[in-house]
Design a protein around this nucleic acid. Structure first.
Length: 546
RNA sequence: GCGCCCGUAGCUCAAAGGAUAGAGCAACAGCCUUCUAAGCUGUGGGUUGAAGGUUCGAGUCCUUUCGGGCGCACCA
């Protein structure tokens, strides 16, 4: 099947040459208004200056000379300030339907990212407590991006970085030990800077259940150290469990301790010292990140001789670069907005191609219940956990809601809306369209149509408009990959569902004359495939019945 | 004070520099002896916070300004 856009591109280039117009890149877009057709080009507007003619005049000159394959393009017209608009031929739209049945779940895929090796790091929450809802949003966005990048041809690995080393783990161990001793009848207080959440009391109880008071007899530092490790292991397990339930697998769980095990932070520090980018001030060691555009310099080693978290973080990213990825994507919370400039500077200091590092700063989540903010206090340990949220609203609704907004926008997540089985809930609206189609096949007791179906009876405007929507999937996926944001898929899925419901309302499937019924069944099948594919790219299920 | 994000319909948000700025919800008026009414059809609703600038063309880019959110550690 010929691609009409490629076809038009060649044809327009031919006409430009024949008119002796200068060579220029020809862009196509989908007009916002359906009245303007399916495809538009602004080439006449772009050429206006170089050709020194009015855009409309140029557009008319080009339009007159265009010759089309009528199986692809039905008509074209000059409109507005000088756009040339094209309407796709019904025959081509029916071809799109055929090709969906042929390609099944590979429809929507593409190859503009083939050859790319992308490493996506996300969630990377500290193993010191349960995952919160911001992590849940990061998980939904990150995993969807993995699926989207893969669909466009990239090799993608996902990675979860675990801070299981240093000061934080020590504090975690001391906090747990305090809870542990208290439960054993030796009241102890959690360190001021430690972890005060109730979950550690619960975990201490389970440690006693399994291992009794064996840590009581150890010297305090050793007991804390070992309890800290236990707590880390426990939380990593928990995080892995809940993320798997959320359909978010990681190719690798990367432990910070591994870097320390091979002295990577020290090695990287030495290397940076060689470049002259490290300097001492007040007894601390700074990295001169300001030399590469950052707003300030950052401490890599405190005056007490301790590396800050920045140093192993640099070592981690050096490690990522060494593994041969063509692109590194990090998803971080809004409190990490310093990260990009700081890490890029560090990479430049080390002579690494910092432009391959792309950071998505994911904005916060505001939990609402019936429109009222859910109060959360991190200090008092009152947070809504990811596990609770998924339990309450379900994986499908949660994943869909988390990608409903652009990553740059804070997300209002209304728990009651996500749970509601009503027209206000966009997840059900889309899933319902899929289930309705499945219901038709059940009711009609018909085998699923295959690619050999005869599509020619389809000519109703609702049928053709549905095909127009389905046709957009590859481009929607491609754009989501380009902007590194899955939210566009949700908008488009709702549009497909809307158009399907319209079709369903206006056109009967079962009981029509035989050839028309067969063609409409094929159209339903194509719609079903495309809906399932779009939902799958977001990790959302496509139910057969609701 | 500095940095990042945001400001678009009553609300929540779309709109890779393009045409008359679009959806959903809410509001109002209709549609179920017929494949799932979790659906469909229709109506009203806007100085894109403000002011300059770049451009053939700005919600989008630049400058200034006002408002909101978040962050500003020799913690992670």
């Amino acid at each position: 099947m010929k691609d009409p856009v490629e076809y038009l591109r060649e044809e327009i280039h031919r006409v430009l040459r024949s008119l002796s117009f200068p060579e220029t890149e020809v862009y196509f877009e989908k007009p916002k208004d359906a009245l303007h057709g399916d495809i538009a080009t602004n080439v006449a507007l772009v050429l206006a200056r170089a050709v020194r003619k009015a855009p409309r005049e140029i557009a008319n000159l080009i339009a007159e000379k265009l010759v089309f394959d009528s199986a692809l393009v039905a008509s074209h017209a000059v409109a507005g300030p000088g756009f040339i608009n094209f309407v796709l031929a019904p025959e081509h739209l029916r071809d799109v339907g055929r090709s969906i049945l042929e390609r099944e779940t590979t429809f929507g895929n593409g190859n503009e990212l083939s050859g790319q090796r992308i490493l996506l790091e996300f969630v990377s929450a500290n193993p010191s407590g349960p995952l919160n809802i911001v992590s849940a949003r990061a998980a939904a966005v990150g995993d969807s991006l993995c699926r989207i990048f893969r669909a466009r041809g990239a090799h993608v690995d996902s990675e979860y970085y675990i801070n299981d080393f240093g000061n934080q783990v020590r504090l975690l161990g001391e906090s747990l030990r305090a809870r542990y001793e208290t439960l054993l009848g030796n009241p102890a207080s959690v360190p001021e800077e430690g972890y005060h959440g109730e979950y550690l009391v619960e975990f201490a109880r389970s440690v006693i259940r399994r291992e009794g008071d064996k840590y009581h007899s150890l010297p305090a530092p050793e007991a804390s150290q070992r309890l800290g490790q236990l707590a880390v292991q426990f939380h990593v397990q928990e995080h892995r469990k809940i993320l798997e339930r959320f359909r978010v697998p990681f190719t690798r769980w990367f432990f910070e301790s591994e870097l320390h095990g091979r002295s990577a932070p020290q090695a990287v520090l030495k290397q940076m010292e060689h470049t002259g980018a490290v300097f001492q001030e007040d007894g601390a060691m700074y990295l001169r990140t300001s030399a590469y555009g950052d707003s300030k310099d950052w401490v890599v080693k405190t005056s007490a001789g301790q590396p800050t978290y920045f140093l192993p973080d640099i070592a981690y990213h050096v490690d990522k670069f060494a593994r041969g990825y063509t692109q590194l994507v990090n998803i971080l919370g809004p409190d990490h907005h310093h990260f990009p400039s700081r890490m890029s500077a560090a990479m430049r200091i080390l002579g690494l191609p910092a432009e391959k590092l792309h950071v998505i700063i994911l904005q916060q989540v505001n939990l609402l219940r019936d429109g009222v903010a859910v109060k959360m206090s991190k200090r008092a340990g009152e947070i809504v956990e990811m596990a609770e949220l998924i339990e309450e609203v379900g994986v499908d609704a949660a994943r869909f809601f988390f990608v409903l907004r652009r990553t740059t926008t804070p997300l209002d997540f209304d728990i009651e809306l996500a749970k509601s089985r009503s027209e206000e809930n966009p997840v059900y609206y889309v899933q319902y369209a899929h289930a309705r189609i499945a219901s038709i096949f059940r009711k009609g007791q018909v085998l699923l149509p295959d690619a050999s179906a005869d599509w020619s009876p389809l000519a109703h405007s609702e049928e053709l408009n549905l095909l127009r929507r389905l046709r957009e999937l590859p481009e929607v996926v491609s754009e989501a990959a380009a902007v590194k944001d899955p939210h566009g898929l949700t908008t488009w899925l709702r549009e497909v569902a809307t158009q399907f419901h319209r079709f369903y309302h206006h056109c009967r499937v079962l009981g029509e004359r035989k050839d028309l019924q067969a063609a409409r069944l094929a159209l339903c099948r194509a719609t079903q495939i495309v809906l399932a594919r779009g939902l799958d790219l977001l990790g959302v299920a496509a139910p057969e019945a609701m």
